[in-house]
């Protein structure tokens, strides 16, 4: 059975719990382990790219919303310098988000080649 990001079992996520003020946003937030499990399912159904996406998502699942929005912003065209992207990738790698770090490094190389750095 799945657990929410907060650790609460899915079965406890009821309207009664809500009314008792026992549900917080993290109780209806997906757990990284669940995303990993969904990645396995996607792989079994012929879509390794969807699986890779779920695994990147599992890394992001631990980050606050503002950080995800900032990361997205940093990857938009001509928003970041090479140094900034490098630093971002290092930071992600250091925080147990190697797949996202790899995505940023790959983007940095592509942006350098195609004139999309700031």
């Amino acid at each position: 059975m799945s657990r929410a990001f907060s650790g609460k079992p899915a079965d406890d996520l009821t309207i009664d719990a809500l009314v008792r003020d026992e549900l917080a946003p993290d109780d209806v937030r997906i757990h990284p382990d669940t995303l990993e499990a969904q990645a396995v399912v996607a792989e079994r159904h012929g879509n390794p790219q969807l699986a890779a996406n779920f695994r990147r998502a599992a890394e992001l699942a631990r980050f606050p919303e503002s950080e995800i929005l900032a990361l997205y912003e940093a990857l938009r065209p001509r928003r970041s310098t090479m140094d900034e992207l490098d630093a971002l990738a290092d930071d992600l790698a250091a925080r147990d988000a190697p797949r996202c770090a790899a995505l940023v490094r790959e983007a940095a190389a592509a942006y350098a080649a195609r004139g999309l750095l700031r």
Binding site: A57, L60, A110
Partner: peptide, 25 residues
Amino acid sequence: EGVFVDGDDTPWSKALLTSGYASRG
């Protein structure tokens, strides 16, 4: 690529956005 960038995105920013949605289920 030209239209993609005019749309203020790249494949990597879209990939990150895609993962961002999945990260919140």
